[in-house]
C-alpha cells in the first residue's frame, strides 16, 4: 500500500508533538512515512520513533547556507508522486514546502486543516476555519497527490514505533540554492509550552504598556504559553514569533486570556476558535468583550497579579 508522507517539524533534535499528531492522522490514509530534514543522530531517531511512523526518511545534504523550502520540496518530489498524500505542518516553512511541492506535482493544496478525514473512497477531506474563524469550510484536493498542511491539535498522537530508517540525500537545483543565507538565528527553545500546542494562552497587547511581567507571571502560574498582539510586537515589546493573529500564529487553546488587547478582527482571526475566551481590559466597549466568555473590566497591572496570587494560594 502506498505511504503517506509526513514532513516533520523539529525543534533541535526533538520532533514536535504536532508532528506525532499528524502521523496519527495519516494512518487513516496509509502507512505514515515521516520525513525528517536536517542532521540525523540518536536523539532525533528516538524522537522520530516516538512520533509513531512506519518509516522514516532521513533527509540530509540540505544546503545550510540557502533558504531550504525549495530544496526540501525538490528532494521529496519523487517520493511524493508515489504517495497517497503529503501532510505538512501548517507553519510558514511547511506552507512554503507545500507550495513548491504542489507546483512540481501539479497537485492541489489545502492549507491550515484543523481536521482531516477520509471520505467514502478513503480520500482526505479537510476542515478549515476561515474568515477570522467565522466559517467552517470542508475542502479537498481534486487533482494530483493531495498536499495538505495540518494545524496542531488535529488528532491525538499514537504509540511509538520502531520505524525503518531510509537515508535520503538532497540534490538541490541551482534555483533552490540561489537564495544565500548570510546568517541565521534559531529561536531558543523556551521553558514555556509551545504557543500553538498550549492548552492555555495568556496574551498581552498595547495595554501592557511594554511590561509583560504580569502576563508572564500569570502564564507561568497557569503553565500557559505567552502570546502577543501585533501592536505589542510592533512596539518591540515581544518577539514576532509570539504574535497571535492573521499574520502571526493561529491558536485554538482551551482557554485564551487576552490582556490589554482590544480584539481587532486581525487578532480575532488568530484566537477566535479558542474554547473559552477571557478578557482583561480597561474599556468595557472594547470589541474583545463581545467575544469573551468572561471579562474583567480593569487595569491588567492590578488584575493579573491578583489572579496569579489567587492561583498560587489555591494550589497550596
Amino acid at each position: 500500500m502506498s505511504e503517506v508522507l509526513v514532513l516533520a517539524q523539529r525543534d533541535g533534535d526533538e520532533i514536535r508533538r504536532a508532528t506525532a499528531e499528524t502521523v496519527a492522522l495519516a494512518r487513516a490514509f496509509g502507512p505514515p512515512a515521516l520525513v525528517v530534514a536536517g542532521p540525523w543522530n540518536d536523539g532525533v531517531a528516538r524522537s522520530a520513533a516516538a512520533a509513531g511512523p512506519e518509516k522514516v526518511y532521513a533527509l540530509s545534504g540540505l544546503p545550510d547556507d540557502s533558504v531550504s523550502a525549495l530544496a526540501v520540496a525538490e528532494s521529496l518530489a519523487d517520493l511524493a508522486a508515489r504517495s497517497v498524500a503529503v501532510l505538512l505542518p501548517s507553519t510558514r516553512e511547511g506552507k512554503e514546502v507545500a507550495a513548491h511541492l504542489a507546483a512540481r506535482l501539479e497537485s492541489g493544496v489545502v492549507t491550515d486543516a484543523v481536521r482531516l478525514e477520509p471520505d467514502a473512497e478513503g480520500r482526505p477531506v479537510a476542515t478549515q476555519s476561515v474568515f477570522a474563524g467565522t466559517f467552517t469550510v470542508r475542502s479537498r484536493v481534486t487533482r494530483g497527490v493531495p498536499v495538505v498542511t495540518v494545524k496542531p491539535g488535529a488528532a491525538e498522537p499514537g504509540p511509538a514505533t520502531e520505524p525503518v530508517v531510509v537515508p535520503l540525500a538532497a540534490t538541490p537545483s541551482p534555483v533552490a540554492t540561489a537564495v544565500r543565507v548570510l546568517d541565521r538565528s534559531v529561536r531558543p527553545k523556551g521553558d514555556r509550552p509551545q504557543l500553538t500546542e498550549a492548552e492555555i494562552v495568556v496574551s498581552g497587547g498595547r495595554g501592557t504598556a511594554g511590561d509583560f511581567s504580569a502576563v508572564e507571571a500569570l502564564a507561568d502560574a497557569l503553565g500557559a504559553a505567552v502570546g502577543a498582539s501585533r501592536a505589542a510586537v510592533d512596539s518591540g515589546w515581544y518577539p514576532h514569533a509570539y504574535q497571535v493573529g492573521q499574520t502571526g500564529v493561529t491558536v485554538s487553546p482551551q482557554v485564551y486570556l487576552a490582556c490589554g488587547i482590544s480584539g481587532a478582527i486581525q487578532h480575532l482571526a488568530g484566537m477566535q476558535t479558542a474554547k473559552t475566551i477571557v478578557a482583561v481590559n480597561k474599556d468595557p466597549e472594547a470589541p474583545i468583550m463581545a467575544v469573551a466568555d468572561f471579562a474583567v473590566v480593569g487595569d491588567l497591572h492590578a488584575v493579573l497579579p491578583k489572579a496569579t496570587e489567587e492561583i498560587v494560594a489555591r494550589r497550596r
Partner: peptide, 30 residues
Amino acid sequence: RTAVESALRRPARSSGEVVKDDGDGGARMV
C-alpha cells in the same frame, strides 16, 4: 485542483459574564 464542499457559518460568539474590578477582579477570574 481543490474544491470546497461546504462552507458553514459558525455560531457567533457572544459575550458572557462581565465583572468590574473592585480589587477582586483577579480572584473572580480565577
